[in-house]
Design a binder for these strands. Structure first.
Lengths: 212, 212
DNA sequence: AAGTGTGAAGTCTTTCACAGCT
DNA sequence: AGCTGTGAAAGACTTCACACTT
């Protein structure tokens, strides 16, 4: 399969489309047009078609898309046709919240381990099969549980250190919630979810708007 | 002040630059070049200069930027030279975690209220001056506390309802953590932080990578 | 000599508009 | 008649490269 460079924005929209389709499936809708999807998720219909066109022809001209079929295609494209094992490092409020976040489990992301350095947190039971463990078991757990995704929820000053350990242990992708720019090898996929940046964007647009 | 359309990416990078500058200030650095900032945050030096150029000329040719001065400029640009009052609706694990997230307070975002419908959660004390309140006080609290930013951390099925209430009450901007596409009037600023979308992006790139 | 500020070029992304199926 | 799939056009963003200032 020759894959052209896919815009990141396209992949993110696919994820959104797929969730909209879940909803349509729940409502028993069988067919849907690009225009209807577009309306449902707030983009243009041409955008929807272009996004899908990167991966093939999933619709029928004059008719639209079969909801169930399109959903399956997108889930496969996103690599969500089977589970991913996840490790979270940092069992603070945020890490703990993410560890039991239902939205992840629903989409096939299984949090297999939650680590921290704080002795007070170690041993805390968050769910039937999830107990906070010391960070010393990181490498062992990554290997035993076949972890491919690491989530970093430690404070900024230890984020790079934790990242290095995760990379060293062989994790292939990282989701960084710390407010630091992390350095990883080319081969490791990194995404930042900077919560403050998002609020600051609102701040900017609020300021700009009121200054008018 | 005639403001051209500023790319969203530029605003997000400014936020990142400002945090990098905080670090430099801590280290006692007085001057910094666009190249050094670029290296520190992982973008090109031309990008840094271009981003700043949208807002004025802050540097000295041949020398660079005064760290403290540039920091102040960026903070003002971002509207962070004074506080923003924030309300969080949804006191689940995520909402509660965000409510006491230090990263927000550090940057001038004050969480003045945390609401929920669940009687079991109402009354829970999260901090000295933060107790979970019933959602019925939403409008009153928005007005009394002069709330301009709402954070939505309720499950998807009530997200639109909560959003409507926040908009009705007069909130100017929303940060949506629910996995739903929200409808808001043109005048209200909306940003989505879809946690699953970010993981699914990793899933996609992992799948694509391993399929090679 | 060093490093900013910026038009111009290049690249990437979205929208347009219509041929081609059903 | 309706809606997809897609080249071509438009638009947005990034990088280049260099004149200009200290």
């Amino acid at each position: 399969m020759k894959v052209f460079k896919i815009p990141e924005a396209t992949v993110m929209r696919l994820s959104v489309y797929s969730r909209h389709l879940t909803q349509l499936i729940g409502e028993g809708v069988v067919n849907v047009s690009s225009g209807e999807i577009a309306k449902g998720v707030g983009v243009s219909s041409a955008q929807v078609r272009k996004d899908l066109a990167y991966f093939g022809e999933f619709g029928t001209r004059g008719v639209g898309y079969n909801v169930q079929e399109l959903y399956s295609h997108i889930m496969r494209i996103l690599g969500l046709n089977n589970c991913w094992n996840v490790m979270i490092v940092g069992a603070g409020k945020l890490g703990s919240a993410l560890a039991i976040y239902k939205g992840f489990a629903d989409r096939g992301f299984k949090v297999r381990a939650l680590l921290d350095t704080d002795p007070d947190k170690i041993g805390t039971k968050l769910a039937e099969d999830l107990v906070v463990e010391p960070i010393t078991v990181l490498e062992e757990r990554v290997k035993d549980e076949n972890i491919s995704i690491g989530i970093v929820t430690v404070p900024g000053d230890t984020a790079q250190e934790v990242t290095d350990k995760l990379v060293e242990a062989g994790v292939g992708a990282l989701l960084n919630f710390s407010p630091r720019v992390l350095r990883v090898p080319e081969s490791v996929i990194l995404r930042n979810v900077d919560l403050s940046v998002n609020l600051e964007l609102l701040s900017f647009y609020l300021s700009y708007g009121t200054a008018r």
